[in-house]
Design a protein around this nucleic acid. Structure first.
Length: 216
DNA sequence: ACCTGTTTATTGCTCG
DNA sequence: CGAGCAATAAACAGGT
């Protein structure tokens, strides 16, 4: 909070680093999605079934620790449980379960909004019935990728295979991205809860076309 | 005015 | 050590 006395020049100088990752080229930007985001979800956080809240959440004492979940994970869980939520409902869900976020603190809410915006895992839906804001839902159900990632986690050796796919087979990336995008808007089943997620019925082809994923 | 959503910047941490 | 990511902060625009 305090240390924000940076000159504008410094700001402009900085902004190259991590941004280029998902802006500069289509395939690479999607590769990162496959590469780390799903990996995180599968790898660490989502235990077999409903372990739900970490021990902290159950009946946590005043000095609640920060949950070992990233914001995307928290949001994802909220959305998996509820399908579609408004931003404020997501706030509610998180603060209900994690006393750490009980405080009416603008910081973590800002982070939640930030994550919703920048993370392709989340998809902005229709406007909420009343008030400002939209309904948010999970974009990629990763129905194919989750098991895939599990394997990778289990056997580290296969990491090379994974890399090879991403680097050597752009088409795979394109198709995966199409699958992800399509999965987000086609009725599908949630891997963990079994919830059916209905959104706009759009064909994979259409998604591919509209996203400009067909290059040849 | 407030809430929501987007974007940019910065910092800290992890990993190769 | 550099690159990349998560978290955080903040500015800004649009909607109600």
């Amino acid at each position: 909070m305090a240390s924000k006395t940076v000159s504008d020049k410094a700001k402009w100088r900085r902004r190259k680093g991590s941004k280029t990752v998902y802006e500069d080229n289509d395939c690479a930007s999607l590769a990162w999605l496959l590469n780390f985001r799903l990996d995180e979800f599968v790898n660490v956080k989502v235990p077999d079934d409903e372990q739900e809240e970490p021990k902290v959440a159950a009946d946590s004492p005043p000095a609640a620790k920060k949950p070992p979940y990233t914001y995307p994970e928290l949001i994802e869980r909220a959305l998996r449980e509820n399908g579609e939520l408004t931003v404020s409902a997501i706030y509610q869900w998180i603060s209900d379960r994690f006393p750490y976020y009980k405080a009416n603190d603008e910081r973590w809410k800002n982070s939640v909004r930030h994550n919703l915006s920048i993370n392709p895992h989340f998809r902005k839906g229709a406007r909420a019935s009343q008030g400002a804001g939209h309904l948010w839902s999970l974009a990629a159900n990763a129905i194919d990728l989750l098991p895939l990632r599990n394997q990778f986690v289990e056997t580290e050796k296969t990491e090379e295979v994974q890399e090879a796919q991403i680097i050597e087979c752009p088409k795979v990336i394109v198709l995966d991205e199409a699958a992800i995008a399509a999965a987000s808007i086609i009725p599908d089943q949630d891997l963990f809860t079994g919830n059916t997620m209905f959104l706009n019925p759009v064909s994979t082809e259409q998604v591919v076309r509209e996203c400009g994923l067909i290059t040849m």
